[in-house]
């Protein structure tokens, strides 16, 4: 394959998608700086590259563009943070976040955005919703995405982290009972993500989850037909990507809306419930076996 410089990659993508420099770099760097990156006069750090590429609807770059020792160690921290978060080892996450923080200057906004995001996630998991929301807002403000919360996207582009932040902020509002705020953000996110290409990572990850929330809202408004449409959309997206997260909720809600309790639907829901009680190694837990024995086996 032909070798292409980073600058050329960014510029080609930007031009192809008809995006101005100003719109792309809004909140993260100056247009002059972006111009320098595009002409290869300067090389941005990998985190910034990822942000730019993601806003262009591409998935983040592989390690090829790491250009400093500092950037490398930060990428190792991030990898470990994500792993600990997946395993719910929150005190370990906090330890690494502290090290990350101590190695980050205040001027490195994108890195701080990441730090606040992860700190927010820990608060969220510990049900400290106000604190979580504060951190998410602080993070969003760093790249001028805070006013999306009440003013909408208005043509702004989002990186994966910015998308995640908005999603979590909406989720937090929902947990706090502020459903109007939550619904507004979910709506904006849904419209934005639907415009992205199918292979866009943030679309695959967040759109189904956003749509599930939208479906719940429609159920609360008694718009059952519309809710069903959204649930079908969410189901289709999740299954296409072979995802599991959110699938149990979709099937549960669908079952609640369906008048005739389809046996096939029940089987599917139970399969997913059993899957969700897996052991760490993926094997069916005793709980799962009991669930199966007390339901399907009786049929």
């Amino acid at each position: 394959m032909e070798e292409i410089t980073l600058g050329e990659l960014i510029m080609n993508l930007r031009i192809k998608k008809n995006i101005s420099r100003a719109r792309l770099c809004d909140g993260i760097c100056s247009t002059v700086a972006l111009g320098r990156y595009e002409s290869n006069e300067r090389v941005p750090d990998k985190f910034l590259i990822d942000c730019i590429l993601e806003r262009l609807g591409e998935n983040s770059a592989r390690l090829e563009f790491i250009s400093s020792e500092d950037e490398f160690s930060k990428s190792v921290y991030r990898r470990d943070i994500e792993e600990y978060l997946d395993n719910r080892q929150y005190s370990d996450v906090e330890k690494i976040l502290e090290i990350y923080r101590s190695n980050t200057q205040k001027s490195e906004r994108l890195h701080y955005q990441y730090i606040y995001f992860k700190e927010g996630e820990i608060c969220f998991e510990n049900k400290k919703y106000e604190d979580a929301l504060d951190l998410y807002k602080k993070a969003l403000d760093l790249t001028e995405r805070l006013d999306v919360i009440d003013k909408g996207l208005c043509d702004k582009l989002l990186s994966d982290i910015e998308t995640g932040l908005l999603y979590k902020a909406a989720e937090t509002y929902k947990c706090m009972g502020e459903t109007d705020c939550a619904d507004y953000i979910f709506d904006e996110l849904r419209k934005y993500l639907m415009e992205q290409e199918d292979d866009c990572k943030k679309k695959a990850e967040y759109l189904p989850l956003v749509v599930i929330h939208t479906a719940e809202t429609e159920i609360n408004r008694s718009n059952y037909g519309l809710a069903k449409q959204y649930l079908n959309m969410a189901e289709e997206l999740l299954i296409k990507e072979y995802h599991l997260t959110g699938l149990e909720k979709v099937l549960e809600l669908k079952r609640r809306l369906d008048e005739d309790n389809d046996e096939e639907e029940l089987h599917r829901l139970l399969a997913i419930k059993i899957l969700n009680t897996r052991n760490v190694d993926g094997t069916i837990s005793d709980e799962g076996i009991k669930l199966w024995e007390s339901t399907i086996k009786q049929i």
Binding site: Y242, H243, L244, V280, D281, G282
Partner: peptide, 10 residues
């Protein structure tokens, strides 16, 4: 299974 669980894919 363990590997697929880690990567959240089915």
């Amino acid at each position: 299974l363990k590997w697929m669980k880690k990567h959240n894919k089915c």
